[in-house]
Amino acid sequence: MNILQTASHRLLAAIANLLAEKGIASAQEVAHRIALTDAASPAQGARMVARAWLDPDYRALMLSDGTKAAEAEGIPMRGLPPLGVLEDTADVHHLVVCTLCSCYPRAVLGYPPFWFKSAAYRARAVRDPRGLLAEWGTVIPDTMRLRVVDSTADYRWMVLPQRPARTDGWDADRLAAIVREGDMIGVTFPAG
C-alpha cells in the first residue's frame, strides 16, 4: 500500500510528531495557530461592511484596497493574500467561488463554510449561478446582472452588499449584526 493511503488521523499524528521533533512546528505553535484561526469570523467582515455603509471614505478605501481597509479595522493581514472587495449595486450582484480549490477571504470571514468547499457549489456557480442561488432562496431580479468571480489565483474576494432599505439611522453595531457570512460571498442578501 502507498504510505499516503494511511488512515488520515494516523497520518496527521505521525506528521505532527515529526514536525515537532524537527523543530518545524511544536504542539504549542499548532495550538496557538488554531486559536488565532478560530478568532477570525464573519463578524469581522460584517464590521467592515457596516462601516462602509456609513462612511463614504472608508467605502472608497475598501473598494480600492481591501487589505488596507481590513487593517484599518484591526484585522491582521500581514503575509496574507491581498483582499479585493466587489461592490454590489442596484444593477450588479456579485457571487464568489473558487472552482479550482477553495480560496476564501479567511482573514476577514474565518474558515470557509462547508458549502463553499463542495463540488456542487464549485461546479454550479460558474455554469448555473441563478439556479445555484435558488438553493438559498435567493432570487436575482431579471433587471440585475450577475457577475461570478472565480478566485483562481492570488487575490481573495469578498462582496460589499447593498445596504437594505429600512435601515436608516441604524448605527454600525446594529448594521453589522444583520450581515451574514453568505451575504459577503453573494449567496444571500443582508436582511433589513
Partner: peptide
C-alpha cells in the same frame, strides 16, 4: 502580470442569462 478578465457567461456554456458575466484572475 495578473489580470481580472471578464467573460460573457452564457457564451461559455450555451446557457444562462444574457448579461451575466464570469470574472477570472488570469496570468
Amino acid at each position: 502580470d495578473l489580470y481580472h478578465v471578464r467573460f460573457d457567461q452564457p457564451a461559455i456554456w450555451g446557457e444562462g442569462r444574457a448579461g451575466d458575466a464570469l470574472v477570472i484572475e488570469l496570468a
